[in-house]
Computed example of a mutant assay.
Amino acid sequence: MNQQQSYEGGCACGAVRFRANGPPMRVGMCHCMTCRQVHGSAFGSYAMFDRSAVTLTGNTREWQSSEKGRRHFCPLCGSVAFMMYVDREEIALPIGAFDDTGLFEPAYELWCKHKEPWLPRGVRPEYDEERAH
């Protein structure tokens, strides 16, 4: 019997939880200014799943972070819970929000025109801005 792997995670306080079933569609790093500010770090890293593969529990607040992006965060602790898009049936789950470490390795980097100069170059494919989906 083939049992599908599932991955769990959530916000810092545990009020928002998610479960993702099966492998992600892709995994990447983003150096855009919004990801930098939202995460308070030099980049954000996300595992992208089909929306139908993810179950969410708990209440979130949403804000429009770009024309097509909607970021959800926990109203109690403020941590990033996930991101959805209005034009795609996918959900971006922050790698740092999973319960376990070492699950996914990014395969590409976006918005490298904002990449910190002290980060290594050429480790994975890099795009100055967005990439084709």
Rank of each mutant, 00 (worst) to 15 (best):
M1D: 09
M1H: 08
M1I: 10
M1S: 15
N2A: 13
N2G: 00
N2D: 10
Q5W: 00
S6Y: 13
E8S: 15
G9I: 05
C11A: 08
C13V: 08
V16I: 07
V16G: 00
F18Y: 15
F18H: 11
F18P: 00
P23N: 11
P23S: 10
P23A: 15
P24L: 09
R26T: 12
C30M: 08
M33G: 02
C35W: 06
R36Q: 15
R36Y: 06
R36H: 03
V38D: 05
F43V: 02
F43I: 03
S45W: 02
Y46T: 08
A47F: 02
A47E: 14
M48I: 15
M48K: 03
F49T: 04
F49Y: 15
L56W: 15
G58Q: 11
N59S: 11
E62N: 11
E62A: 01
W63M: 13
W63Q: 06
W63G: 07
Q64M: 12
S66I: 02
E67R: 14
G69I: 03
R70D: 06
R70N: 14
R71Q: 08
R71I: 11
H72A: 10
F73W: 07
F73M: 10
P75V: 04
P75M: 05
G78W: 00
G78D: 00
F82V: 05
F82Y: 15
M84L: 13
Y85Q: 11
V86S: 14
D87A: 12
R88N: 09
E90G: 02
I91G: 03
L93A: 04
L93P: 03
P94C: 01
F98L: 09
T101H: 10
T101A: 15
L103F: 05
L103K: 10
F104R: 07
E109F: 12
E109D: 04
C112R: 00
K113T: 10
H114N: 15
P120K: 12
R121V: 03
V123N: 07
D128V: 01
E129G: 14
E130D: 14
R131W: 00
A132T: 12
H133P: 01
H133N: 05
